[in-house]
């Protein structure tokens, strides 16, 4: 069923397997970006599309307990920032809705893609999220 679902936005991630965040790299500034910008905002040069690391460490998180009906997110849901391994980039994303209580600062996480909530068109859609690594946490 999930193969029929569309990503919440085009050009943000590859469904996989394995799922990947679609980032970019500026060879002049040696800076990575997510999502891919029009040009490198630092030098206005062209950027190259790259796959970003699918593993990282939780920098901070929030758990929203009240309903967020805008995109029909689960209640509660966790989201926050992850420092991606080796990319020198801190990205924002959802955390696994099934494992909200496992999220903590320093937790090792892996990128996943799955159906969470609805998209701009009001239909169920795919979102990226980070799931805690079993046993590999802090």
């Amino acid at each position: 069923m999930s193969s029929e679902l569309k990503p919440m936005l085009d050009g943000i991630f590859e469904v996989g397997p394995p799922p990947r965040l679609l980032g970019a790299h500026c060879p002049v500034c040696d800076q990575k970006f997510f999502p891919k910008p029009v040009v490198c905002p630092h030098c206005l040069g062209e950027v190259q599309g790259i796959d970003l690391s699918s593993e990282g460490t939780v920098y901070s998180y929030s758990i929203l307990r009240i309903p967020n009906m805008m995109y029909k997110f689960p209640q509660p849901y966790a989201s926050g920032y992850v420092d991606l391994d080796g990319d020198n980039i801190r990205v924002y994303g959802l955390f696994d809705p099934e494992k909200v209580s496992e999220i903590e600062i320093g937790k090792r996480v892996t990128l996943q893609v799955g159906q969470i909530g609805i998209g701009l068109d009001g239909k169920e859609c795919l979102r990226y999220y980070f799931t805690p690594q079993d046993g590999g946490g802090k």
């Binding site: 929030s62 989201s79 924002y92 959802l94």
Partner: peptide, 12 residues
């Protein structure tokens, strides 16, 4: 689109 309403940023 990934769920970051205003209060989340401050909870983080």
């Amino acid at each position: 689109l990934e769920g970051n309403v205003v209060i989340n940023g401050f909870a983080q």
